[in-house]
């Protein structure tokens, strides 16, 4: 029990008329890199928002264990901010400290050092005076990660961080992320529907579509039909990278209807 960082206990969430999460119970253990997988609309974002406290579950409870309540860093999907907002990279990372500095945050020399260190960790230290809107999608995502880690959380939640970035930027992203996991002993939950890359990178997979279909190491679940059931279509078995994994093969949507 000591290594559990977050526990979800029979979580039910409705979004309006729709059931988003149905009786979700699981534990996230310290030091794991977890891939949260599922098709579009499967409840991945709701799952992350429920953990971070942005959504209150209609039933069940989220238990965050550990010394501080501000134990979670959260990086939402990239497109949710105004690209014209007049703030620099430094300003954005500074905002990540406000939660831990109380209602009237004062930024002194130690806070400035933390901001600088966070920017160095994500490789954005040379961009600190650039306006956030000038950055590419991949660069922006790294700045948002710096904002999430500057307050030194134990758990980092990432929502579709590589959507819309090219293969090079995606590789850079994983290089930065593995560096953070190693240096900061971070626990990471990364939501993605990218079945081609994510299973080869993570320690555990949580596969959801409203409810949890499976939670375990990729090598144990790769050859089961759980993804086919979660995604509701045929998946092809692939072997490259660290673990064998499955990808969605081209399919006709009549396949769904036939099942």
């Amino acid at each position: 029990m000591a290594d559990i960082i977050v526990e979800l206990d029979h979580i039910w969430v409705w979004r309006g008329e729709n059931l988003a999460l149905k009786d979700v119970s699981l534990a996230i253990r310290r030091g794991k890199f977890i891939g949260l997988m599922g098709p579009n609309g499967s409840g991945k974002t709701t799952f992350l928002k429920t953990i971070v406290g942005l959504i209150k579950p209609d039933r069940g409870k989220v238990i965050v264990t550990g010394p501080t309540a501000k134990a979670i860093g959260y990086v939402p999907q990239e497109e949710h901010t105004d690209p014209d907002f007049p703030v620099t990279v430094h300003d954005v990372v500074e905002m990540g400290l406000y939660g831990s500095l109380g209602m009237f945050p004062r930024i002194g020399s130690s806070e400035k050092q933390r901001i600088e260190k966070a920017l160095v960790r994500v490789g954005m230290q040379d961009h600190s005076s650039r306006r956030i809107g000038e950055l590419s999608g991949g660069e922006k995502q790294r700045v948002f990660i710096a904002r999430a880690i500057v307050a030194e959380p134990r758990l980092l939640l990432l929502d579709e961080p590589t959507t819309g970035v090219d293969a090079g930027a995606r590789d850079d992203f994983y290089r930065v992320l593995f560096g953070l996991i190693k240096d900061l002993s971070l626990t990471v939950v990364l939501a993605s529907h990218d079945l081609e890359v994510v299973p080869g990178k993570v320690d555990e997979i949580i596969c959801i579509n409203q409810t949890v279909f499976v939670h375990g190491p990729p090598e144990e679940i790769a050859d089961t039909d759980v993804f086919r059931r979660a995604y509701g279509c045929e998946l092809e078995f692939m072997v490259h990278g660290r673990y064998p994994h499955r990808v969605i093969r081209e399919h006709d949507h009549e396949e769904h209807d036939a099942e």
Binding site: P76, T81, V87, S100
Partner: peptide, 12 residues
């Protein structure tokens, strides 16, 4: 004003 969602997540 910049990011209401993340501000809320960090306790603002």
């Amino acid at each position: 004003s910049f990011d209401e969602e993340v501000a809320m997540a960090t306790g603002a």
